[in-house]
Design a protein around this nucleic acid. Sequence first.
DNA 1: CAAATAGTTTAGCCTTGGCTAAGAATGTTG
DNA 2: CAACATTCTTAGCCAAGGCTAAACTATTTG
Lengths: 158, 158
Amino acid sequence: MTDDNPRISLPTASIPGDALPPVEQHAQQYATVRNAHETELIEDYVELIGDLLKHRGEARAADIANRMAVSQATVSKMIRRLNELELVTSKPYRSLFLTEAGQKMAETSRARHDIVLHFLRALGVNDATARIDAEGMEHHVSDETLATMQRFTEQQLR
Amino acid sequence: MTDDNPRISLPTASIPGDALPPVEQHAQQYATVRNAHETELIEDYVELIGDLLKHRGEARAADIANRMAVSQATVSKMIRRLNELELVTSKPYRSLFLTEAGQKMAETSRARHDIVLHFLRALGVNDATARIDAEGMEHHVSDETLATMQRFTEQQLR
DNA sequence: CAAATAGTTTAGCCTTGGCTAAGAATGTTG
DNA sequence: CAACATTCTTAGCCAAGGCTAAACTATTTG
C-alpha cells in the first residue's frame, strides 16, 4: 500500500483546493458510476419502449433502432436480454410490451428524466442542449440531488 | 419506416406533456451519450493520474487500482491503452507520467469535475453525495450547461 | 394472390473493460 | 544478502454492446 496513511483526517467538506478524498470514498465514487453504467442502457430501452407505447400505441424494433441510431440487429439482441430480465414480453415479429416490472422501471426513468430536463431548463439551458444533457445525466443523479433539483425548479416557476 | 410522419411539426421547446422528440433529435441524444461513454473511462484514468501526480508526486498502478476499486490487472491493461493513445508515458514497474496531451486532458477533466462539484454544493447537495454525482455527471454535461452552472455557483457565493 | 417491400431475427465478428491466477521485478528487512 | 512482501505484468477467461450479412416473416400493392 503506497497510498493514504490515515494519521491525518480532515472534514472532507472543507478541504481547500480539493485534495484527494480518502481511498474508500474515492473507490465508492467510481464503483457507483460503474454500477450505473450497467443498468443505464437497459433503462434507456425500457423508458423508450414505454414512451413509444404511450405515444404511438406500439413499440416496434425498427422504431427503437431509428430513435437510438443503432442497427436493428442490436435492438433485436437487446430485446432478448430485456426478455430474460423479464422487463418486456414479446412474440416474434410483433410489437413489444412491458411487464409490470418493466412499466415500473419505465415510469421511474421517465420521472427522473423529466425532473432533470425541467431543472436544466429552469436553470436557463436551452431546450436542445437540455435534452441531450438530461439523457446523459439522468442515470447519475442521486435521489438527494434529484429532490434538490425538483425543489429548485418549482421555486423558479413561482 | 413505421415512425414519424413529418406532416405535423411543432416547436419542440413548448410541447405540453413532453411528446416524443423528432427522430433525428432523439437519435442524436443517444448518440451523444454513447460517444461520451467511450472517452469517459479514459478521462477518469487520466484525471486520477494527474491528481495523484499533483498530490502525491507519483502515480502507481496500485494506487489507481485502490482508488478505482478495480484489480491491478485491469489497471495494467488500461495503462497499455493510455500508452497507445499517447496520453501517458511509462517504464515497466515504474510510476506513470502524463504526456502533453495527457496533461491537457487531465486539466480539462479536473476543471469540469470541479465546476460540477461546486455547483452541486452551491445548489445545496451535501458533500458526499455531490462527489458521487459529480463523478458520474461530469462527462455528460455540455459546455453550455457547464457555463450556466459556473454562473450559478458564482452568483450563489455573492 | 404473387411479387415486392419492409420489418425481424440469427450468425458471427469485433472492441472494451472487467476478472483470476501465475509469474516476474522490485523493495524491505532480519 | 537472502527471504519475504509488495507491486506489476501477462495470459486467458467472460459479458456487454456495437456491427454486417443473410435468411426469414409480415405487409402492402399491382
